[in-house]
């Protein structure tokens, strides 16, 4: 009896380990955003995005430090952190979601798969449910997740003063590109 339960226990632990190995991750993913207003185009990128994708369940999560966004103009970067996203108060942006059609993606076979992702995006302390089409690319066993989607700053309570309406657009295009590697722990 004791042996059986031990075997059972072992089995449970093993499955846990196996489970963990189905996760792929990165700490150096890329997120950039782009917004165009009549007088100014705003562009910034962050090369230290953390992303974990559970290939079995299709669960996916992103996290990024707002301070890590780099702008071409130093002052723009300062204003981004100080006045718009308030990086000291809300240092992180996060996405927690699920690949809806995860069953259609064969992570062991090379190819480019369209993934529909739904989940919660949190920026500036505000969470919104979003849905986006993305791509999961598998090449030689390596998984790359990418997507492009748009958000409205107003949804995240990032206000644009009337004085800079011509310079800062409410509509921001976000591009995500994360090459992932197996997570071992």
């Amino acid at each position: 009896m004791k042996q059986k339960s031990l075997i059972l226990l072992l089995f449970i632990f093993c499955s846990g380990i196996l489970h963990a190995q189905e996760r792929v991750f990165t700490k150096n993913g890329n997120i950039s955003f782009y917004s165009e207003a009549p007088m100014e185009t705003i562009e910034a990128s962050n090369k230290n995005v953390t992303c974990v994708l559970d290939t079995k369940s299709g669960q996916v999560q992103f996290a990024v430090l707002m301070r890590g966004f780099e702008f071409r103009k130093a002052l723009m970067q300062e204003h981004f952190n100080e006045n718009y996203v308030e990086s000291t108060k809300f240092p992180k942006a996060e996405f927690k979601g699920q690949i809806v059609n995860n069953a259609d993606i064969n992570y062991s076979k090379d190819g480019s798969y369209t993934a529909t992702v739904t989940g919660k995006l949190t920026i500036h302390g505000e969470s919104r449910d979003i849905q986006s089409q993305g791509t999961v690319k598998v090449t030689g066993g390596k998984v790359t997740a990418s997507t492009i989607f748009n958000i409205l700053l107003a949804d995240y309570k990032i206000s644009i003063p009337a004085l800079v309406k011509d310079k800062v657009s409410n509509n921001v295009r976000i591009t995500v590109n994360c090459p992932l590697e197996p997570l071992k722990n």
């Binding site: 489970h19 991750f25 974990v52 996290a63």
Partner: peptide
């Protein structure tokens, strides 16, 4: 444990 893990995949990574 698995559930709390999946609700925060980033745990242990960040």
């Amino acid at each position: 444990k698995a559930q709390t893990d999946t609700t925060d995949l980033l745990k242990g990574v960040t």
